[in-house]
Design a protein around this nucleic acid. Structure first.
Length: 573
RNA sequence: GGGCCUGUAGCUCAAUUGGUCAGAGCAGAGCGCUCAUAACGCUUUGGUUGGGGGUUCGAGUCCCUCCGGGCCUACCA
């Protein structure tokens, strides 16, 4: 038994996440967490909302709420949706938590002591009307290069030229439209991660088996141009973790907060502290997951994220930990994903394009989404969601292959033997052949799950379901029962146990279906089938069951078309 | 501009990482079965692996080049 720490990239607070966000981090993280729990490992699975930064402040203002109130509300919304998708976090925290304030300030203090913090005075655009400094991309104006009138201060979307906000002609605030802008001096802290470049480089080189996507992005940032750049880790905002050096004030930094991407990864640690508090446990309970000098040396730490988050997890956060000089746990494996696209284009939170988590659950229970999204996870490249593909995948895999197998087995048994596992007969040659095949397939399935090869695992699981239909077809108990009732009984007994097996091994993908099957089979047994022969005798002769209702309904063409047209436009704000 | 990823049967993807690997699922076709959500099973039609060149005894697999798609490029997070 191992100890496995799992974190999913923490979703930003400003609104409901779409299916692309879900499949890029939280969902595969949950799949892995459920799997390793099923294998008997000790697991701590953490996620949280990422609540700081300019977009949160603006979203709150738009909603007419205080930022704290807005974040609290949106955290509840996201937590409820996470439950809806059966995301089995041990704790769903908040980056605005007191624990994160303390830890973020602690890390900053340690980094300063060790010479990894530099104070830099720089000039930034200040909007008098908005009463705030504006990040580059919140300044709009005319592109000096191509004349595009809605160019952003960091880059012109039209001609892709990189810009400095002061390059813009007729600059204005993207927030208020005000042109009352001025350049002001402001002082900020920089994380001197360039000093850690070689250590980070060697650390990345020392990792084996990481996805190419993960290492290639990290290498790009390490070696591109002048190499890894220092990064500003403070902002002139009201909402966030106040800049402090540990417990002490930081002279000259009054009224400033840490940059969201400095405090967000630290929330992974703080979230463990939040978890301990919520569980009524002491400090040691969470520190044994995070401090290698306090028990975390045998922890395996796995992170899940979309590709846009890779630089922060491979470089900035490790630099924060390394620079602290303290024995915090570094990540052991980073699983990163490409993007899921919607009908040819991008899912977009800001434009409301695609299907969002709340909408998805209004259409279908979470298992449908979990299955399709995971079976088509964007691992090797971007993957596309279309309603046709979704319908085809769900109908075939879940309704026809798995659902119908359960249906035909239980209904046949009920009709011929009653609603209990039939007695009599012995395992047939076909049954023994099935056990042989499933032994191999189960080994392949677990190997893929261990390697977090999501699509391959899904494909192998599906093949296991198919094997049940093949067996049943070959055994043909509806025929043999006329001549040899014991033989039919033995085959159906095996088939009923297959249903139980499917419930157990499918649980990471389909937690609700698994629970329904176990309930129908009137059993709590969910131990992993290390011994397949024994697992297929879990339900003994005479064991009663209830024929389950339709496990998965099909999506008909009319419904599919209706959904496709309903989600063709953009989401109402 | 630079960098990374990608282009394999109509569609979605595999190929132990140069050595019978050209495969699977879906879709299509034929047959079978009738327990089942008109479901299931069996068989089967599809590919000069984007184009061209090169290295090698041998290349989806390495190199060069051209074409197409996607992403990143550090003050959104």
């Amino acid at each position: 038994m191992a100890r496995i720490l799992i974190t999913s990239a923490i979703p930003y607070i400003n609104g409901v996440k779409h299916l692309g966000n879900l499949v890029g981090s939280q969902l595969p993280a949950d799949l892995y967490a459920r799997y390793v729990r099923a294998r008997g490992h000790e697991v701590l699975f953490l996620c949280a909302t990422d609540e700081h930064g300019t977009p949160a402040e603006l979203a709150a203002a738009k909603a007419g709420m205080e930022v704290a109130e807005y974040c609290a509300r949106m955290h509840r919304v996201q937590a409820r949706l996470a439950q809806g998708f059966r995301l089995s976090f041990d704790h769903f925290g908040r980056s605005s938590s007191p624990q994160n304030h303390r830890l973020t300030q602690h890390f900053a203090g340690r980094l300063a002591e060790n010479g990894y913090i530099e104070e830099v005075t720089e000039r930034q655009v200040y909007s008098v009307a908005d009463g705030r400094f504006l990040p580059d991309r919140y300044i709009e104006g005319t592109c000096p290069n191509c004349g595009y009138e809605k160019a952003r201060g960091d880059q012109c979307e039209n001609c892709t030229k990189q810009l400095d906000p002061t390059d813009l002609i007729d600059p204005r605030s993207a927030i208020s439209g005000s042109t009352d802008l001025e350049v002001r001096q402001t002082k900020h802290l920089y994380l001197r991660q360039s000093l850690l470049k070689d250590r980070l480089d060697a650390w990345i080189d020392g990792q084996t088996g990481w996805p190419i996507l993960t290492t290639s992005i990290a290498k790009k940032w390490l070696h591109d141009g002048d190499g890894l750049q220092d990064r500003g880790i403070t902002r002139d905002l009201d909402w966030g973790v106040p800049v402090k050096k540990g417990d002490a004030d930081w002279p000259g930094m009054e009224g400033k907060v840490f940059y969201v991407w400095f405090d967000a990864p630290i929330e992974y640690i703080a979230c463990a502290a939040e978890w301990a508090e919520a569980q009524g446990l002491g400090e040691a309970a969470w520190r044994r997951w995070w401090r290698t000098d306090e028990g975390a040396d045998d922890v395996r730490y796995v992170q899940f994220m979309g590709k846009d988050n890779v630089p922060f997890h491979t470089l900035s956060f490790p630099a924060t930990i390394m620079g602290s000089g303290e024995p915090w746990k570094l990540v052991d494996y980073i699983k990163s994903f490409n993007y899921l696209t919607y009908d040819g284009g991008q899912f977009s939170t800001s434009q409301g394009r695609g299907v969002f988590m709340d909408q998805a659950l209004e259409l279908l229970p979470s298992d449908y989404w979990r299955w399709w999204l995971l079976a088509n996870a964007p691992e090797s490249g971007d993957a596309e969601f279309t309603w046709e593909k979704f319908q085809a995948g769900v109908n075939k895999d879940l309704a026809d292959v798995l659902g119908n197998f359960v249906s035909r087995v239980t209904k046949f048994c009920r009709a011929k033997f009653g609603e209990e596992v039939p007695a009599g007969g012995e395992m047939s040659a076909a049954g023994r052949a099935l056990v042989g095949e499933l032994t191999e397939r189960l080994a392949a399935y677990t190997a893929h799950m261990e390697a977090i090869e999501v699509r391959k695992a899904a494909a192998e699981l599906r093949a296991v379901w198919v094997a049940g239909n093949e067996f049943l077809q070959g055994a043909a108990p509806w025929t043999t029962i006329k001549e040899d009732r014991d033989r039919a009984a033995a085959d159906i007994r095996l088939a009923l146990n297959l249903v139980h097996l499917y419930a157990v091994i499918s649980e990471p993908f389909l937690p609700d279906a698994a629970a329904r099957l176990l309930e129908a089979l009137r059993t709590d047994r969910r131990d992993w089938p290390d011994d397949l022969g024994a697992a297929l005798e879990a339900l003994p002769p005479g064991h009663g069951f209830v024929t389950p209702e339709t496990l998965f309904a099909k999506i008909d063409d009319a419904t599919r078309d209706e959904w496709a047209s309903r989600f063709a436009g953009t989401r109402a704000a």
